[in-house]
């Protein structure tokens, strides 16, 4: 599904990623852990299509060169990024945003757009599953949402859009224990043989709920070690300093 080969990324001639390689197959869940500033968000931004990076190397998504696609085209193809810091958009009603987003993606895929009633039905269902307070959906997008509510809102969007590849950038940070469980349930319910996940986290705890197939350690601009779920435990015990 996703093949990253020899990715190199600089910002303002400062090297962030180099010789970065990763392959995610359909249905797999990969976790990436790494110290602050190691380039995890940079990676997810680049995958999403954010501008402002000098990049080289190759990223294929379903055998298509991602660098040739605009951000929104990547979204249409099924790439979803749950942002580490979800943006506030004053004046834009959350429900309207969700509906516009869903319909833009459906339209690009040649699917029928949902009318207001169909959409509300869907959003009600998903909000309920995620125990997301529906009243908040009538507020301006992320404006005045608590940190945890913003994160939950990302997962709500993910479950409505049903993406093929979901990238979760520290979605667990700032969530209370119950919310963590709910978010994990959300991910697990989307987990199917074609849907893949790239989960960026600092805490082994999330991986208790979402069992990853692979865990990678990102340091010095690339993956220095890969393994199974046990690698996360090892990291938790040793810390990055003593890890090598």
């Amino acid at each position: 599904m996703l093949k990253i080969k020899n990715l190199k990324a600089d910002i303002e001639s400062k090297s962030i990623l180099n010789n970065f390689n990763l392959e995610i197959k359909p249905g797999e869940v990969h976790a990436i852990m790494g110290p602050n500033g190691s380039g995890k968000s940079t990676l997810s931004n680049i995958l999403s299509g954010k501008k402002g990076y000098d990049v080289s190397g190759e990223i294929l998504f379903e055998n298509k060169n991602l660098f040739e696609l605009e951000t929104e085209e990547r979204a249409h193809k099924g790439i979803f990024l749950a942002f580490q810091y979800p943006l506030e958009i004053p004046g834009v009603n959350t429900n309207i945003f969700l509906k516009t987003s869903l319909n833009a993606i459906r339209k690009a895929r040649g699917e029928k757009e949902l009318d207001a009633i169909e959409f509300l039905k869907l959003v009600k269902l998903k909000a309920k599953e995620l125990k997301f307070d529906e009243e908040k959906l009538n507020r301006q997008l992320n404006v005045g949402f608590s940190g945890g509510e913003k994160k939950k809102n990302e997962i709500l969007q993910m479950s409505i859009l049903n993406p093929k590849l979901s990238i979760l950038d520290e979605t667990d940070s700032g969530l209370d224990i119950d919310a963590l469980k709910i978010v994990a349930d959300g991910v697990n319910s989307l987990r199917k043989k074609d849907n893949s996940f790239l989960i960026i986290t600092h805490y082994q705890r999330l991986l208790d709920y979402i069992k990853p197939d692979y865990v990678h350690v990102l340091m010095n601009g690339h993956i220095i070690k890969s393994g199974g779920p046990e690698l996360a435990l090892e990291l938790e015990n040793k810390g990055y300093e003593n890890f090598n």
Binding site: G49, K51, T71, E72
Partner: peptide, 17 residues
């Protein structure tokens, strides 16, 4: 970028905002 990540092209995003 956030709006585009959710499938809106830049014009649609600006229109919405």
């Amino acid at each position: 970028h956030y709006c585009q990540q959710r499938g809106l092209n830049p014009e649609e995003a600006v229109g919405l905002i």
